[in-house]
Amino acid sequence: MPLNRPLIVVLLLVLLAALALVKRGGREAELREGRILLGTLVEIQVPRGDRAARDAVTAAFAEMARIEALMSPHRPDSDVARLSAAEESLEVAPDTAEVFALGLDVAARSAGAFDLTLGRLKALWDLEGDNPRVPDDAEIAAALEGIGPGALRLDGRWVSKARPDLAVDLGGIAKGYAIDRAIAVLAGAGIEQASVNAGGDLRLLGSRGARPWRIGIRHPRSAEELLATLELSGRAVVTSGDYERFFEVDGRRYHHIFDPRSGYPASACQSVTLVADSAMLADALATAVFVLGPEKGLALLTEFPGVEALIVAADGATHATPGLAELKR
C-alpha cells in the first residue's frame, strides 16, 4: 500500500493532541473555591473573578491550613497535640493563645458547659474515627476526671495544665477561629465582599452586592426544610446540631457534642444557631448553649451583647434571643 508512513504517524499524533485539547475555556463572574480543611469542606465565595481576588482566596486558604496545623489534635507537631503530651506547661503560638483566651473565658462563664479539656473523652468515643463506640461508665468517669474550666491556665503565651494527663481539644472553637482568620486575610487584601463557609459554619464580609447575604438555617429534623432565613452583612453564623455527625447503636443516636458533666452527648437541644461578630465566639457559644439547653443558654447569652441565637430544644420547640426577629427575612 502506498502509504506515507511518517505522515500518517504525524497526523495521528496531531489528532490525539487535538482530542486531548478539546473542551477548554470557560468564564467566571464569581469566584467560588473549595478545599477540604479542618475535616470539612471550606468554601470561599468572592463576587469578583480577577487575579487579585484569586490570590486573596489562595492566601485565605493557606491561612486556614496554618491554623489547622496549629490546632489539629491529629497532627503530632500541633500546639494541641504537644500540649496534650506535655507534663505541665508549654509555650504556644500567638494564635493558639488567642483561642485559649476566648475559650477559657466562655468555659468559665458557661460553668464548664463549654470545655477545652475533652480530648480524652472524645478519643474514647472516637466519633470522628472509623470505629465509634459507646464506652462503659468506668471509662467515661476516668476520662472526665480532672477536666473543667479550672484545669487549664493561660499566662501570656504559656498554657499550663493542672494534671499531666489532660488532653486538650479545640474542636468547638478552632474552626471558628480559622474562619475569622480567613476573613481577616481577605479583608487585608482589599476584598470588600466575601463569605467563608466551613461545612455550614460561616462568616460574611460586607454584603452580597447591593443586598445583605441571605443565610438559610437548616431544620434539625428535615434536611429539605429551612428553620428560618436570616439577612446579614458582615457577621458570623454557626450552627451546632445533633444531626451533623453521629452513630447509632441499638436504635439510639450518639452525636458529637458532648456534655462535660455526664460524658455523654448533650440531650437538651436538637440544634443551636448563633449569630455573632466573630465566628470563634459564635462557635464556642453554640456549643455552650447546646449543652446548657434553651433556658440556661439564653441566660448565658445576655452576658454577650450583640449575639443572637435560634435554638431548637429537644422537644422541637424553638427559642430565640429577642433581637433575632429583626434579622429574619
Binding site: L13, L16, A17, L19, A20, V22
Partner: peptide, 9 residues
C-alpha cells in the same frame, strides 16, 4: 504516554 481524552480511549 499519549494524552488520552477518555479513559476508555
Amino acid at each position: 504516554l499519549l494524552p488520552a481524552p477518555a479513559p476508555w480511549f
